[in-house]
Design a protein around this nucleic acid. Sequence first.
DNA 1: CCTCGACTTCACAGACCAGTGTAGTGTGTC
DNA 2: GACACACTACACTGGTCTGTGAAGTCGAGG
Lengths: 196, 196
Amino acid sequence: MSTQQVPGGALEVPPLTPGARRILEVASQLFYRHGIHAVGVDTIAAESGLTKRTLYDRFGSKEQLVATYLRARHQDWWRRMELRLAQQPDRPALALFDSYAQDAQPSDRGCAFINAAAELPPEHPGRQVIQAHKRAVIDRLTELIGPDGGSGAGAAAAAEEVFLLLEGALVHRGIDGDDHLLERAREAAARRIARR
Amino acid sequence: MSTQQVPGGALEVPPLTPGARRILEVASQLFYRHGIHAVGVDTIAAESGLTKRTLYDRFGSKEQLVATYLRARHQDWWRRMELRLAQQPDRPALALFDSYAQDAQPSDRGCAFINAAAELPPEHPGRQVIQAHKRAVIDRLTELIGPDGGSGAGAAAAAEEVFLLLEGALVHRGIDGDDHLLERAREAAARRIARR
DNA sequence: CCTCGACTTCACAGACCAGTGTAGTGTGTC
DNA sequence: GACACACTACACTGGTCTGTGAAGTCGAGG
């Protein structure tokens, strides 16, 4: 099978000590809300009630903390998506669409992966995580659209189009905080899937 | 008429002294390539061969310099787009699509406005510029798709879908540097426009 | 009892951040 | 000659950034 419950490799989060978990939780919220460059390690340590020393003992560098943040975010999201797919197995591609879209509330900062990609330099280890995440989403979408779980060429094309609509809508919501284009994207995606 | 050659208001760049122009040029390159947070005013001043004092005398703050950078970027792009539209007046919506897509080379950092949106806090003056830019693009696209320059409801919907495909493809190119999804988006957009 | 691991405390390095104050130069124009 | 204006030179403030070094606390498990 091509997808585990949570795809591994670049997207795996190693076991964490309780302190490290706490730091990661706080860092995740701050990174997402304010952006990665805008949040310093001092702030993360202070907000999590742990010391900067612990942060560096556990994660090695801010870079690695950021990469771990993205991996954890992927895992959380993937788990939620599979749950939703199991609960509403009809029109699964649209269920993924909804899951992706509702990963974030209307008033928030859009897609964490897209935002991170905009901030991180080309060599940053987090970039591989972002690429792996998006690849995993497209692949899953292709499976869901393809006839009986297979993946013909038509399914791949449809999946990519649906993915683009989704990404565009997510970005735009991050810009103007409006859900209107998200609804438009969903309609277009439904039409596209029905056509295939 | 609903669009001037270069839409004004939030998108207007005030007249600049020679030194200010030089600073803006250098700042534009650095902001685009490395991101806004990652580039300091000292660097901008040094690279442009002018002093930090001049930068602050001309622009007032880094915030305002950033906003001006985005305005200037919009104006450049808009001018290029209108030029392309004038040169290939058939299938104008796709011409805009191509112009938007080729605003950036394959190996670069994607859409400057999307990247900036991911970095800037909600209160930043640059955000208004970004919103105005995207609004201007959607409006122009609607005009181009609509029957004889008009803007029926169907044209608006088609324009939004084309816009979403475009944004999605642009974002994804910024993530994996691949043009493949851009071509896919163009095909889908062409199909969508033909249908209307 | 001893060791290990998680975590603390705190000082510190060295660079970089946005932004200002003051004084002065050169050029063009009324 | 007076004035405006673009720009320079440069020191300086107060703060933040990532990252480290060294010594020490505490509890669990052998």
